[in-house]
């Protein structure tokens, strides 16, 4: 009897201690970057498919956007991997263009191996490091080495370490894969900014969740759940069927999402 009481007491003490150390409750200003609209739990493998290299901007943008939401207070590092031979076909992330994604361009590390085996090794090595939040691997072509077993291996490693892997792939073919989530990202016509009807507006993507589910929601349609989102400095913003974003904008503000600029400051401080 006494033993169970002491045990219960100890459990409660630990729970209180956990609540007190939780930054969310302790200090609202030090909140780590909140989960985005589409952010799934950390520690999983994602495949982000684009139809071809021409859509690579949108796919990489989505991957970096997701990577930003994977960052935590003491888990900040994001790595970008690309085979050296693929650089001209796909283009390299441009340091001056990364600001809009809340990533510190001077701290993003590019890994450029020669072979796919080295690339897979580098992903594994990176997610084993406890300072790495996410690894974005940009792979232009299908490879034999990147099969179900390889993706299963990565999934297990990612689940064990808590770091996320985002594999950016190209084409319409889908191979067997153990990745928990598969996204298809294609660009969509943007809404022009209010001051110039002929200018491009915020990036707008049509994101299809082909595999996996978010937050216990059931799959909406056989083809997968489809989101039409804008990428703003506050994060993702849902776009309704008429192409309006007004309601979502307010919702994002109410939920207390710090702006990307605030996120930047946090990452500089951390």
């Amino acid at each position: 009897m006494l033993g169970t009481k002491i045990h219960t007491l100890e459990t409660l003490r630990q729970q209180i201690a956990a609540l007190e150390t939780n930054p969310l409750l302790k200090d609202a200003a030090l909140v780590s970057v909140p989960a985005g609209l589409l952010a799934p739990p950390r520690g999983s493998v994602h495949e982000v498919f684009a139809d071809g290299p021409r859509d690579g901007g949108a796919a990489l943008g989505f991957a970096f956007a997701q990577a930003r939401f994977m960052q935590e207070q003491n888990r900040q590092a994001v790595l970008f991997l690309q085979l050296r031979a693929d650089a001209q076909e796909l283009g390299l992330p441009y340091g001056l263009g990364l600001g809009g994604f809340g990533l510190d361009a001077e701290r993003l590390v590019y890994v450029r191996p020669e072979t796919i085996a080295e690339l897979l090794w580098a992903i594994e090595e990176a997610i084993a490091c406890r300072a790495v939040a996410a690894v974005v691997a940009d792979i232009a072509h299908p490879h034999k080495a990147l099969d179900f077993i390889a993706s299963r291996r990565l999934s297990l490693r990612a689940a064990a370490s808590g770091a996320s892997v985002l594999l950016v792939r190209y084409g319409r073919e889908r191979e067997a894969s153990a990745a928990k989530y598969r996204w298809r990202v294609s660009p969509a016509l943007s809404q022009p900014p209010p001051y110039d009807a002929n200018a491009p507006g915020l990036p707008r993507w049509q994101v299809t969740l082909e595999k996996g589910s978010l937050g216990g929601r059931r799959k909406a349609a056989p083809g997968g759940e489809v989101f039409l989102v804008d990428w703003t400095e506050n994060g993702f913003e849902r776009v309704d069927a008429d192409g309006r974003t007004g309601g979502a904008r307010r919702a994002a503000a109410v939920s207390g999402a710090p702006s990307a600029a605030l996120g930047d400051r946090l990452s500089e401080a951390g």
Binding site: A77, A105, L108, R112
Partner: peptide, 27 residues
Amino acid sequence: DGAASLDQLHDRMTSRLGSLAVVRNSF
């Protein structure tokens, strides 16, 4: 802050892939 383990990760990658394969932006 994990900086030391990150540095070690960079070392390992550099020793396996070569120093020009592990890079970062410089403006």
